[in-house]
Amino acid sequence: MTRSDARDIAIKGLWSNNPALVQLLGLCPLLAVTGSVVNGLGLGIATLGVMLGASASASALRHQVRPEVRLPAFVLIIAAFVTCVELAMAALAYELYQVLGIFLPLIVTNCAILARVEAFASRQPLKPALFDALMNGLGFSLVLVLIGGIRELLGQGTLFAGMDLLLGDAAGDWTVHLPGDGGMLFLVLPPGAFLITGLLIAAKNAIDDAVKRRRPAPTRTPRDERRVRVTGVVR
Protein backbone atom coordinates (compact mmCIF):
# COMPACT_ATOMS: atom_id res chain seq x y z
CA MET A 1 0.00 0.00 0.00
CA THR A 2 1.56 3.26 -1.13
CA ARG A 3 1.35 6.57 0.69
CA SER A 4 -1.11 7.94 -1.88
CA ASP A 5 -3.32 4.86 -1.44
CA ALA A 6 -3.29 5.32 2.33
CA ARG A 7 -4.14 9.01 1.97
CA ASP A 8 -7.02 8.20 -0.38
CA ILE A 9 -8.40 5.58 2.01
CA ALA A 10 -8.14 7.96 4.96
CA ILE A 11 -9.90 10.83 3.17
CA LYS A 12 -12.71 8.57 1.98
CA GLY A 13 -13.25 6.93 5.36
CA LEU A 14 -13.11 10.10 7.44
CA TRP A 15 -14.77 12.58 5.08
CA SER A 16 -15.63 12.11 1.40
CA ASN A 17 -17.25 8.68 1.81
CA ASN A 18 -18.04 8.75 5.53
CA PRO A 19 -20.29 5.78 6.41
CA ALA A 20 -22.72 7.93 8.41
CA LEU A 21 -22.80 11.28 6.61
CA VAL A 22 -22.38 10.15 2.99
CA GLN A 23 -23.34 6.48 2.72
CA LEU A 24 -26.05 6.95 5.40
CA LEU A 25 -25.34 3.50 6.85
CA GLY A 26 -25.83 2.45 10.46
CA LEU A 27 -28.50 5.09 11.06
CA CYS A 28 -30.39 2.96 13.60
CA PRO A 29 -27.70 3.14 16.33
CA LEU A 30 -26.60 6.55 15.11
CA LEU A 31 -30.00 8.05 15.87
CA ALA A 32 -31.00 5.94 18.86
CA VAL A 33 -27.86 5.87 21.02
CA THR A 34 -26.31 9.31 20.53
CA GLY A 35 -28.02 11.06 23.42
CA SER A 36 -24.68 11.77 25.08
CA VAL A 37 -20.95 11.70 24.41
CA VAL A 38 -20.35 8.58 26.50
CA ASN A 39 -23.03 6.61 24.65
CA GLY A 40 -21.69 7.62 21.25
CA LEU A 41 -18.09 6.94 22.28
CA GLY A 42 -18.94 3.55 23.77
CA LEU A 43 -20.83 2.37 20.70
CA GLY A 44 -18.17 3.86 18.43
CA ILE A 45 -15.38 1.92 20.15
CA ALA A 46 -17.44 -1.28 19.97
CA THR A 47 -18.17 -0.75 16.26
CA LEU A 48 -14.53 0.04 15.52
CA GLY A 49 -13.36 -3.12 17.28
CA VAL A 50 -15.81 -5.29 15.34
CA MET A 51 -14.89 -3.63 12.05
CA LEU A 52 -11.17 -4.20 12.59
CA GLY A 53 -11.58 -7.83 13.58
CA ALA A 54 -14.05 -8.65 10.80
CA SER A 55 -11.98 -6.92 8.11
CA ALA A 56 -8.79 -8.69 9.19
CA SER A 57 -10.55 -12.07 9.15
CA ALA A 58 -12.21 -11.47 5.79
CA SER A 59 -8.88 -10.43 4.27
CA ALA A 60 -7.07 -13.47 5.68
CA LEU A 61 -9.78 -15.84 4.40
CA ARG A 62 -10.41 -14.15 1.04
CA HIS A 63 -8.97 -17.08 -0.95
CA GLN A 64 -10.74 -19.76 1.10
CA VAL A 65 -14.34 -18.47 1.11
CA ARG A 66 -16.33 -19.48 -1.98
CA PRO A 67 -18.27 -16.70 -3.73
CA GLU A 68 -21.69 -18.30 -3.18
CA VAL A 69 -21.30 -18.30 0.62
CA ARG A 70 -19.44 -15.01 1.05
CA LEU A 71 -22.23 -13.00 2.67
CA PRO A 72 -23.32 -15.70 5.17
CA ALA A 73 -19.67 -16.30 6.07
CA PHE A 74 -19.04 -12.61 6.62
CA VAL A 75 -22.15 -12.24 8.77
CA LEU A 76 -20.95 -15.14 10.93
CA ILE A 77 -17.52 -13.54 11.26
CA ILE A 78 -19.05 -10.21 12.27
CA ALA A 79 -21.38 -11.94 14.74
CA ALA A 80 -18.42 -13.69 16.37
CA PHE A 81 -16.58 -10.42 16.92
CA VAL A 82 -19.76 -8.70 18.15
CA THR A 83 -20.09 -11.43 20.77
CA CYS A 84 -16.48 -10.89 21.86
CA VAL A 85 -16.93 -7.11 22.09
CA GLU A 86 -20.22 -7.49 23.93
CA LEU A 87 -18.69 -9.82 26.52
CA ALA A 88 -15.70 -7.50 26.94
CA MET A 89 -17.93 -4.49 27.52
CA ALA A 90 -20.09 -6.43 29.97
CA ALA A 91 -16.96 -7.28 31.93
CA LEU A 92 -15.22 -3.90 31.77
CA ALA A 93 -18.08 -1.36 31.62
CA TYR A 94 -21.21 -3.14 32.76
CA GLU A 95 -23.30 -0.02 33.44
CA LEU A 96 -22.61 1.35 29.96
CA TYR A 97 -23.30 -2.11 28.56
CA GLN A 98 -26.76 -1.93 30.14
CA VAL A 99 -27.35 1.57 28.77
CA LEU A 100 -26.48 0.57 25.20
CA GLY A 101 -28.66 -2.51 25.53
CA ILE A 102 -29.90 -4.11 22.33
CA PHE A 103 -27.81 -1.82 20.12
CA LEU A 104 -24.62 -3.73 20.93
CA PRO A 105 -25.79 -7.07 19.46
CA LEU A 106 -27.41 -5.14 16.61
CA ILE A 107 -23.92 -4.23 15.41
CA VAL A 108 -24.18 -7.53 13.53
CA THR A 109 -26.70 -5.93 11.19
CA ASN A 110 -24.79 -2.66 10.79
CA CYS A 111 -24.51 -2.23 7.03
CA ALA A 112 -21.47 0.01 7.43
CA ILE A 113 -19.45 -2.98 8.62
CA LEU A 114 -20.79 -5.55 6.19
CA ALA A 115 -20.37 -3.14 3.27
CA ARG A 116 -16.67 -2.54 3.98
CA VAL A 117 -15.98 -6.22 4.63
CA GLU A 118 -17.66 -7.27 1.39
CA ALA A 119 -16.58 -4.40 -0.86
CA PHE A 120 -13.00 -3.89 0.32
CA ALA A 121 -11.54 -6.18 3.00
CA SER A 122 -12.48 -9.43 1.24
CA ARG A 123 -10.57 -8.30 -1.87
CA GLN A 124 -7.45 -6.76 -0.33
CA PRO A 125 -4.35 -7.89 1.61
CA LEU A 126 -4.32 -7.54 5.37
CA LYS A 127 -2.62 -4.14 5.71
CA PRO A 128 -4.92 -2.07 3.45
CA ALA A 129 -7.96 -3.97 4.78
CA LEU A 130 -7.07 -3.06 8.37
CA PHE A 131 -6.33 0.56 7.46
CA ASP A 132 -9.61 0.91 5.59
CA ALA A 133 -11.47 -0.56 8.58
CA LEU A 134 -9.67 1.82 10.93
CA MET A 135 -10.51 4.92 8.88
CA ASN A 136 -14.14 3.98 8.30
CA GLY A 137 -14.56 2.96 11.93
CA LEU A 138 -13.04 6.24 13.11
CA GLY A 139 -15.21 8.21 10.68
CA PHE A 140 -18.36 6.51 11.97
CA SER A 141 -17.27 6.88 15.61
CA LEU A 142 -16.46 10.58 15.23
CA VAL A 143 -19.97 11.22 13.91
CA LEU A 144 -21.45 9.29 16.84
CA VAL A 145 -19.46 11.34 19.34
CA LEU A 146 -20.17 14.63 17.57
CA ILE A 147 -23.92 14.06 17.45
CA GLY A 148 -23.88 12.83 21.05
CA GLY A 149 -21.95 15.90 22.17
CA ILE A 150 -24.28 18.35 20.39
CA ARG A 151 -27.41 16.65 21.70
CA GLU A 152 -26.08 16.41 25.23
CA LEU A 153 -24.82 19.99 25.31
CA LEU A 154 -27.92 21.62 23.83
CA GLY A 155 -30.46 19.15 25.16
CA GLN A 156 -29.31 18.56 28.74
CA GLY A 157 -26.99 21.48 29.35
CA THR A 158 -24.03 19.21 30.15
CA LEU A 159 -21.04 17.71 28.39
CA PHE A 160 -19.07 14.53 29.19
CA ALA A 161 -21.62 13.48 31.78
CA GLY A 162 -21.31 9.82 32.81
CA MET A 163 -17.84 9.35 31.31
CA ASP A 164 -16.97 7.28 34.39
CA LEU A 165 -19.23 4.56 32.94
CA LEU A 166 -16.60 4.02 30.24
CA LEU A 167 -13.34 5.36 31.64
CA GLY A 168 -13.74 4.63 35.35
CA ASP A 169 -13.76 6.82 38.45
CA ALA A 170 -10.97 9.04 37.11
CA ALA A 171 -13.47 10.54 34.64
CA GLY A 172 -16.17 11.09 37.25
CA ASP A 173 -15.51 14.84 37.52
CA TRP A 174 -15.27 15.54 33.79
CA THR A 175 -18.86 16.79 33.55
CA VAL A 176 -19.20 20.33 32.21
CA HIS A 177 -22.39 22.20 33.15
CA LEU A 178 -23.78 25.06 31.12
CA PRO A 179 -25.18 28.01 33.07
CA GLY A 180 -28.94 27.90 33.42
CA ASP A 181 -31.57 25.36 34.33
CA GLY A 182 -31.10 23.09 31.34
CA GLY A 183 -31.23 22.81 27.60
CA MET A 184 -33.72 22.02 24.86
CA LEU A 185 -35.18 18.66 25.80
CA PHE A 186 -36.40 18.20 22.23
CA LEU A 187 -32.83 17.48 21.08
CA VAL A 188 -32.47 14.54 23.47
CA LEU A 189 -35.55 12.87 22.00
CA PRO A 190 -35.47 10.85 18.72
CA PRO A 191 -36.65 13.78 16.53
CA GLY A 192 -33.66 15.75 17.79
CA ALA A 193 -31.33 13.05 16.48
CA PHE A 194 -32.83 13.38 12.98
CA LEU A 195 -32.49 17.17 13.14
CA ILE A 196 -28.84 17.18 14.25
CA THR A 197 -27.88 14.48 11.75
CA GLY A 198 -29.54 16.40 8.92
CA LEU A 199 -27.75 19.61 9.92
CA LEU A 200 -24.39 17.83 9.98
CA ILE A 201 -25.00 16.37 6.52
CA ALA A 202 -25.98 19.81 5.25
CA ALA A 203 -22.87 21.36 6.81
CA LYS A 204 -20.62 18.75 5.19
CA ASN A 205 -22.20 19.33 1.79
CA ALA A 206 -21.80 23.09 2.19
CA ILE A 207 -18.10 22.69 3.04
CA ASP A 208 -17.59 20.41 0.03
CA ASP A 209 -19.30 22.94 -2.26
CA ALA A 210 -17.19 25.79 -0.87
CA VAL A 211 -13.99 23.81 -1.44
CA LYS A 212 -15.00 23.03 -5.02
CA ARG A 213 -15.71 26.70 -5.76
CA ARG A 214 -12.29 27.74 -4.44
CA ARG A 215 -10.41 25.28 -6.63
CA PRO A 216 -8.93 26.89 -9.73
CA ALA A 217 -10.53 25.91 -13.00
CA PRO A 218 -8.46 23.43 -15.04
CA THR A 219 -6.41 25.07 -17.74
CA ARG A 220 -7.01 24.03 -21.32
CA THR A 221 -4.15 22.87 -23.48
CA PRO A 222 -3.97 23.57 -27.24
CA ARG A 223 -5.02 19.98 -27.79
CA ASP A 224 -8.16 20.56 -25.66
CA GLU A 225 -8.98 23.69 -27.64
CA ARG A 226 -8.78 21.76 -30.91
CA ARG A 227 -11.02 19.06 -29.44
CA VAL A 228 -13.58 21.67 -28.40
CA ARG A 229 -13.70 23.08 -31.93
CA VAL A 230 -14.19 19.62 -33.42
CA THR A 231 -16.46 17.89 -30.88
CA GLY A 232 -17.61 20.63 -28.54
CA VAL A 233 -16.50 18.53 -25.52
CA VAL A 234 -13.35 18.49 -23.41
CA ARG A 235 -12.59 15.04 -22.05
Results as ranks from 00 to 15, higher is better:
G49N: 07
F81A: 11
G49T: 09
R70H: 02
A58G: 02
L76P: 03
G53W: 05
M51S: 14
A56W: 02
P67H: 03
G49I: 07
P67K: 05
H63C: 15
R70Y: 01
P67G: 00
S55I: 07
V50F: 13
L71M: 09
G49F: 05
A56P: 03
P72L: 11
V50P: 12
H63D: 15
A54E: 14
T83R: 03
A60S: 09
S59L: 00
E68Q: 08
G53P: 08
C84Y: 09
V69L: 00
A80L: 15
A54S: 15
V82K: 01
V50G: 12
T83V: 13
A54Y: 13
V75T: 14
F81T: 11
A58E: 00
V85L: 06
A79D: 10
Q64K: 08
A80C: 15
V50H: 13
A54T: 14
S57M: 09
A56L: 12
M51F: 10
S57L: 11
A60T: 05
T83C: 11
A79I: 06
C84N: 04
V85W: 04
S57P: 02
A73P: 01
F74L: 13
S57K: 03
G53I: 08
A60L: 14
A80D: 13
T83I: 10
V75N: 07
R62H: 04
A58T: 00
S57Y: 04
P67N: 02
L52R: 04
P67F: 03
A60I: 10
P72V: 10
S55A: 14
R62K: 04
H63T: 15
Q64P: 00
A56S: 02
S55M: 05
R66H: 07
A56R: 02
I77L: 06
C84F: 13
R62C: 01
G49P: 10
L52K: 06
Q64F: 09
G49V: 06
P72Y: 11
E68R: 08
E68I: 08
A56T: 05
L61K: 08
A80R: 11
C84R: 03
T83P: 02
Q64T: 10
V85E: 10
G53L: 05
F81H: 12
R70D: 02
I77T: 05
L76C: 06
T83N: 05
V69T: 06
R62A: 03
A60W: 03
V82H: 03
T83L: 14
A54F: 13
R62E: 03
T83F: 10
L61Y: 07
A60E: 11
R70F: 02
